[in-house]
Amino acid sequence: MKINEIIKNIPGKVIAGEEFLDKEVKTAYCGDLLSRVMAHGPQDGIWITVQTHTNIIAVATLVEIACIIVPEDIPIEANTIEKAIEEKIVLISSPLPAFQLAGKLYEIGIGKEQ
């Protein structure tokens, strides 16, 4: 499913990477421990995390994660937004908590077939 279809189903706003919303993603991962994400983060997938410092963009770039969703309207550092633009990562901020976000994504078929 394309990211722009996915975001129709969840409240939130695109903070960076507006021009890459036609990327296809199949699965998603929740996690705030960076080296766990390094080990299990989904290539071309969505990553839900409460971490907002610039290192999340490095992790996403290295694991080739297409899109990061930050839950609970947690403020995202300006550095991180800049870096996301630079590295072509879609960055989304949502008011929903991680659990609800994951549930909504799963409902529309993200991560169902592994």
Partner: peptide, 15 residues
């Protein structure tokens, strides 16, 4: 607090 310290870095390198 920044999300480091899972104790997975060296195992990741090994893998």
């Amino acid at each position: 607090e920044l999300g480091f310290g899972a104790g997975m870095g060296l195992p990741n390198i090994k893998r």
